[in-house]
């Protein structure tokens, strides 16, 4: 959608061309067609999700065999290349595949976030398949994802349980041997919740006995508050704390000052 509307803007500049009207019509068709396709596909997802569960699981199984079984085993039993997914649960699949971490592109210290490889319905099918083999953490319910809980309590829980790895401002931080806790800005509430219940990679699990669903809702609320809040002091410099501030002072602040000292002492011509 975004791309097509940008195209419209660039076409405007070329209105004098004899092809202008033709391309405008074509564009109109593309736009309306695209919109139609989008609407119809989203309704299709809703349909399949509600009705054809068995079909979805089979679809998921096919996708799994084609894309995941090499590492995780044909029966989810795992291999040297990947852990077992028995009991991993739908939440785990939705998180790993939905943030693009899986399928893994290359072996490294940890699986990085990258562009998502599957459509929403494919991810859902995969999740349902894995969930159907053995029970595990389920996709969180919407009531805990609205980010309208108690931000103050959430922030406190976040500081105690999460900030040591992810930084108080959710800017991320380093772990051992090249691993890292990723930044939390721009992560959807669903994925945050799923990460807490499943403990992806080296992140510990925060089960419901540790942080209740209500606690998790509060944490999401605090994160979303921080993410959407205006940075009152001005540019936050990456929320990385004194290192970023010191670097900025030396480079920008000192840079300006030294440039000015040169100007002040340079002889006027």
């Amino acid at each position: 959608m975004f791309r097509t509307s940008r195209k419209a803007g660039s076409r405007k500049a070329g209105r004098r061309s004899p092809l202008a009207s033709v391309s405008l019509i074509a564009l109109g068709l593309m736009l309306s067609g695209g919109a139609y396709a989008l609407v119809s596909s989203s309704t299709a997802v809703a349909d399949t999700a509600s009705t054809a569960t068995q079909a979805t699981v089979e679809e998921g199984e096919k996708l799994f065999q084609a894309n995941c079984a090499t590492c995780h085993g044909l029966d989810l039993q795992g291999s040297d290349a990947g852990p077992t997914l028995i009991g991993a649960g739908e939440a785990s699949v939705d998180f790993q595949v939905g943030t693009g971490r899986m399928p893994l592109q290359a072996n490294g210290a940890q699986a990085p976030e990258k562009p998502v490889q599957f459509t929403e319905e494919q991810i859902s099918a995969l999740a349902q398949y894995v969930g159907s083999v053995a029970p595990g953490p389920a996709i969180p319910e919407d009531q805990y994802l609205d980010a309208e809980g108690d931000a103050s309590r959430g922030a406190e829980l976040f500081r105690v349980n999460c900030a040591m790895c992810h930084n108080v401002a959710g800017a991320g931080g380093a772990l051992t041997e090249g691993k890292y806790a990723p930044a939390l800005t721009g992560v959807t509430p669903t994925h945050i919740y799923e990460a807490m219940v499943t403990g992806p990679q080296n992140m510990p699990v925060f089960n419901d006995a540790n942080l209740t669903p209500e606690d998790k809702r509060d944490i999401i609320t605090a994160l979303k508050f921080q993410e959407n809040a205006v940075s009152v002091g001005g540019h936050p410099l990456g929320s990385l704390g004194p290192v970023a501030e010191g670097l900025f002072l030396w480079i920008a602040g000192m840079g300006i000052i030294v440039a000015l000292t040169v100007w002040i002492t340079a002889r006027s011509n």
Binding site: V160, A163, A174, V232, G241, E245
Partner: peptide
């Protein structure tokens, strides 16, 4: 600098409590 760039956003850090800590805990540059 003070009008356009945040420094030491203590509201992000929260009050001191011996239990929590933030990734990237550093002193000022000097």
């Amino acid at each position: 600098l003070a009008s356009f760039f945040t420094i030491n956003p203590i509201w992000n850090y929260g009050p001191y409590d011996p239990s929590p800590v933030s990734a990237g805990t550093q002193p000022d540059w000097y």
